[in-house]
Amino acid sequence: MEVVYDLTAECERFLSDVGGSDGLLNVWVPHATAGLAVLETGAGSDDDLLTALRALLPKDGRWRHRHGSPGHGRDHVLPALVAPSVTVPVLGGQMALGTWQSVCLVDTNVDNPVRRIRLSFLAG
């Protein structure tokens, strides 16, 4: 299933566990068919992003990368548009996100429902 999955709570838990104060949180998705975005969720922006990606990257037979479900080649282009990493400033142990911002996994690959996210904290 195509998804925009909010990772903000997992990121906050990680920062709490590592005792991060001030620094940078790096979020990385080690998959060739997923990306990360900072955006508003729950008010339609997450669905709008998936709609825009469907328009930019149609799930049809135009793709040279052909293994998997029909149109799967477009999933391999996704990380060029939605980067596989994001870095968020951390101040006083809290991500310095805007009021409506969330850290989200963006995944259009219906062939692989299992994703891993790598979190790291650079104090500074």
Rank of each mutant, 00 (worst) to 15 (best):
G68E: 05
P113F: 12
A80D: 05
P79M: 03
W28T: 06
W63K: 10
N112W: 12
D107V: 01
D111T: 06
V114R: 15
G44Y: 13
K59A: 15
G73Q: 05
T41A: 11
A55L: 13
P70W: 09
V18H: 06
G93K: 04
G20W: 03
V82G: 01
G20N: 03
P58G: 09
V90T: 04
L50N: 07
G20D: 03
L57A: 04
G71Y: 05
G68I: 12
G92E: 10
H31G: 04
R64L: 14
G92S: 10
S102N: 15
S16Q: 13
V27E: 00
W63D: 03
N109Y: 05
D22N: 15
T99F: 04
A34G: 05
S21W: 00
G61I: 02
V114E: 14
P79L: 04
L36N: 00
L56S: 05
T87P: 01
A43K: 15
R62N: 12
A80R: 07
R13V: 09
G44D: 11
R74H: 08
T41P: 07
R115K: 10
V27M: 05
S102Y: 00
V27P: 00
A52H: 07
P84V: 13
P113H: 10
D75L: 02
E40L: 06
N112H: 12
G98C: 08
E40Q: 14
L39I: 15
S85L: 03
F14W: 10
V90L: 12
D75C: 15
A43Y: 09
A80Q: 03
Q101N: 03
V103Q: 01
M95L: 07
A52Q: 14
H31S: 07
V29H: 00
D47W: 09
S69F: 08
A55T: 15
L53T: 11
V29A: 04
R64S: 14
A43L: 13
S69D: 10
G35Y: 02
H31I: 06
A83P: 14
M95R: 03
V82W: 00
Q101G: 08
L81R: 10
D48V: 12
L25N: 01
